[in-house]
């Protein structure tokens, strides 16, 4: 089976009003080339589920987001994502604000085809009082009340990995695969972009097979986009682009997202990469030290 498609074909599968999960974490290993393709498209009214960074900021500021399901949105070294803040402060988006771990439980519930997973996380906080859709229930086994974290069923998941083969075997060799496996498993349609396309024999080596976190039947489509996580990191291939993020944040103060897009987005990923200095420059970005 050959699951390879183009970024444009991938984004054409996303329809108005769909729920889209985006992998990665803050400024790390985000499927940014696919996000950029959304920005070039007409799709709108999305519900976005993410451990958010600039992916969320860009989608909010370009009017693509109806509702955001989030625990945080941050660029890490720039703690507050400027375009997400503006969207919230303007009242532009609906939100379902939850704990980081609740998001994991919601994705797991969807992946496991459960309506909810019980947890004590969220009790006693405004996570419960501000989210009427999250119910608190009695337990059949004890006298406590529990949060029934609802399944976060995704129409589409977008994730970026280091390497994949044409059948959708995906390798993440960086230090953390974040919750990408659960994003993929929670989705009806999991679209994976990869920095490198490899032969199936690449995974014969056991150490490489250990860096595959879901079965290929969970991957619906593979899009080969070298450098496709830029400006976020794809460790160990490249780090996140600090000067680019600083410039991006600057547009929130002056010019707005449209000016950022006018300068960088282009009509294709090739054009974008030319506008940010080329693929070699992306691959030369140093990894961060924590």
């Amino acid at each position: 089976m050959d699951k390879r498609i183009t970024a444009r074909e991938a984004v054409a599968q996303i329809k108005d009003g769909m729920t889209v999960g985006i992998g990665g974490w803050g400024p790390r290993r985000k499927p940014m080339a696919l996000v950029r393709e959304i920005l070039r498209s007409d799709v709108k009214d999305l519900t976005v589920v993410a451990y958010g960074g600039a992916d969320v900021g860009m989608l909010c500021a370009s009017g693509k987001v109806k509702k955001l399901i989030f625990a945080f949105v941050s660029l890490d070294f720039i703690p507050l994502e400027p375009f997400f803040r503006q969207a919230r402060q303007n009242g532009d988006i609906e939100v379902m604000e939850i704990d980081e771990g609740m998001m994991l439980l919601g994705l797991r519930a969807a992946a496991w085809r459960l309506p909810f997973i019980p947890t004590e996380v969220g009790l006693g906080t405004d996570i419960i009082s501000k989210n009427p859709d999250i119910k608190v229930i009695d337990s059949p086994y004890d006298d406590k009340e529990w949060v029934a974290m609802p399944a976060l069923k995704l129409d589409v998941a977008l994730v970026h990995v280091d390497r994949a083969d044409a059948r959708g075997v995906c390798q993440i060799s960086g230090p953390d695969h974040y919750l990408d496996d659960w994003m993929v498993r929670a989705a009806d349609n999991a679209i994976v972009s990869c920095d490198e396309l490899v032969e199936t024999s690449f995974f014969h080596e056991p150490a490489r097979a250990r860096e595959v976190f879901w079965e290929r039947c969970a991957t619906n489509a593979v899009v080969h986009i070298p450098g496709g996580a830029h400006p976020t990191s794809c460790s160990p291939l490249y780090g996140f682009d600090v000067p680019h993020f600083k410039a991006y944040a600057g547009f929130a103060k002056e010019g707005g997202l449209q000016a950022y897009l006018d300068q960088y987005l282009g009509d294709s990923e090739e054009a974008y990469q030319q506008n940010v200095g080329g693929l070699d420059a992306i691959k030369a970005i140093e990894l961060p030290t924590y």
Binding site: F72, V73, L80, R88, I98, D99, E100, L123, T125, I127
Partner: peptide
């Protein structure tokens, strides 16, 4: 708007 609730509830 700041970070969000992050992992504080849990």
């Amino acid at each position: 708007m700041m970070l969000g609730a992050r992992g504080f509830p849990g």
